[in-house]
């Protein structure tokens, strides 16, 4: 029984070992693609990529509970810069497939909880019913 388990474990580990370089190689080649925003971000992209959720989580409490406005990492500002505009002039939601937020989150297989509540298009564009 123990022997069988050991063999199964070895097989699984071996499989993972073989599979991992393949996955890395794919990441290097394809990666998520999304519309680039205009201007520069509030922080350097590498930091944002790694920590944006920490920044947003921290600041959301400051904004909502303490009433501190205008701090550096605002989800509203993210959407303002990163929502692209469709051919008909209407803004495209940032969580639409292939858009800034969604493309990366789909690639990383992480669901976004923000946009069940938060607006997905910038302030200026009035959502027409």
């Amino acid at each position: 029984m123990n022997m069988l388990r050991a063999v199964m474990l070895a097989l699984l580990l071996g499989l993972a070992f073989v599979a991992s370089p393949v996955a890395t190689a794919q990441a290097g080649e394809a990666g998520p693609s999304f519309p680039k925003a205009q201007g520069s971000c509030v922080d350097d992209p590498a930091t944002m990529r790694r920590h944006h959720f920490d920044f947003l989580t921290h600041q959301r409490d400051d904004t909502l509970r303490a009433g501190i406005r205008g701090a550096k990492y605002s989800l509203k500002e993210c959407v303002t810069c990163h929502a692209s505009t469709a051919a008909n002039g209407k803004p495209v939601p940032v969580n639409a497939p292939g858009q800034f937020c969604q493309s990366c989150h789909a690639y990383a297989a992480v669901t976004i909880d923000c946009f069940s509540c938060h607006a997905t298009t910038p302030q200026t564009a009035e959502a027409k019913p």
Binding site: G67, R69, K76, V79, S116, C117, H118, A119, P122, Q123, A127, P129
Partner: peptide, 27 residues
């Protein structure tokens, strides 16, 4: 489910909400 929320008033299914006294305007 909600869509087309105002950026100043995020709101979504399954939560409770009420008047904010327009905190975003007051601030």
């Amino acid at each position: 489910d909600q869509s087309g929320q105002k950026p100043d008033n995020p709101r979504g299914k399954g939560c409770v909400e009420s008047c904010t006294l327009c905190a975003h305007r007051i601030d």
